[in-house]
Design a protein around this nucleic acid. Structure first.
Lengths: 191, 191
DNA sequence: CTTTACCCTTAATATAGTTTAAGGCTATTT
DNA sequence: AAATAGCCTTAAACTATATTAAGGGTAAAG
């Protein structure tokens, strides 16, 4: 729980009162490797804050192939924001790649906290702004560079992740097949 | 100016007092076709709300080709959020595709409004959440469908835009060349 | 009203990335 | 210790998309 409070305080200080309120609405949960915390067809009930471990969020194409949209490790939030706010069924999956510990908050509880701690509007606004900028960079990169360039900048940008993830997962995140990633790696090692 | 206030009120009601405060910090501006309101190398000074007209935001790859990241028409906001908040030089361009009218607000003025009208934190949080969800859908689509599928769903999702934009711009947004879009359109018309 | 600049198309050639298939390696499960 | 399942690699054939080049049409600018 301390991890989450520290995370918030990294943005803005919180009073004892506010901390107690937050703690009363957030629940801790342990997740096994390969366990799903969201599946297609279900409403995304929680915003999840990752204390330990690592998740991936992915969707399926019409052939049934998986495409990773996002990873989340220690200190990241993960949820299908669209489904969470609209309470409509999600088209996405969220799966633990490693055994994990998370803090979860439900929609109604989060809205309660927004109402009672206006600071949280600010904190989440900034948080989502940062995620938006990251995602936008990713879109630009996807369109403007080759698979090799994208792989190299993934390694640079997420060195901690690249060690922990199987190449299959990285390939899916980069939008290429594992076979082609293998070739990219071979080409790079020749230099 | 009324357009902007109405836009905010669409999310949350504002008092006379708050409206006056907002109006005192926002400036109106007219922009000609092809005029840039942001260029690579410059700090993005403004959040811009589009009252009339249409913009595109794009970046360059290392060969100098343009890649459209986002369009913005009536009722949309456009800015390089990363550069705006960090005050670091942008790598992006924002150009009017049609003659336009916009309302602009500077970083310090916006921060002033955030401090004095906490509601605005909420409003912008929701606004950015929506943009995030849209962008995330785009990422998934980019990875999980062909150019033809992406073109079709662009037409569906942005019918008002697709009439107003030259195909060159749409191609750049879809991540394909104009020549290939031309082929896609031909294939579709054959059916 | 003419000219320039932009826009759309077609088609031939080229390439980045996919598909399919197969084999070996390593971790997990039995 | 054996068996299974996931992971990584290689390579050949294939496909979606890029590149280059060219021509014609239409809207903006002088």
């Amino acid at each position: 729980m301390q991890a989450l409070i520290t995370h918030f305080q990294h943005y803005l200080p919180l009073s004892e009162e506010e901390i107690r309120l937050i703690e009363s609405k957030v629940t801790q949960r342990n997740v096994k490797r390969r366990q799903m915390i969201l599946q297609e067809g279900f409403v995304c009930k929680y915003y999840s804050f990752v204390v330990a471990g690592c998740f991936r969020m992915y969707g399926l194409d019409d052939k049934g192939y998986e495409h990773n949209i996002q990873f989340a490790a220690e200190g990241d939030w993960i949820s299908d924001m669209g489904s969470f706010h609209s309470q409509k069924p999600s088209k996405l999956f969220i799966e633990a790649i490693e055994p994990a510990e998370i803090m979860q908050i439900e929609q109604q509880e989060l809205y309660f906290l927004y109402r009672n701690i206006p600071k949280l509007d600010r904190i989440f606004k900034v948080l989502i702004e940062n995620k938006f900028v990251e995602l936008q960079n990713r879109v630009l990169q996807t369109f403007s560079s080759t698979a090799q360039e994208r792989y190299l900048s993934f390694l640079e940008q997420y060195p901690h992740l690249s060690n922990r993830l199987p190449n299959t997962q990285i390939a899916s995140y980069l939008g290429i097949t594992p076979e082609f990633l293998s070739k990219v790696r071979k080409d790079l090692s020749k230099k």
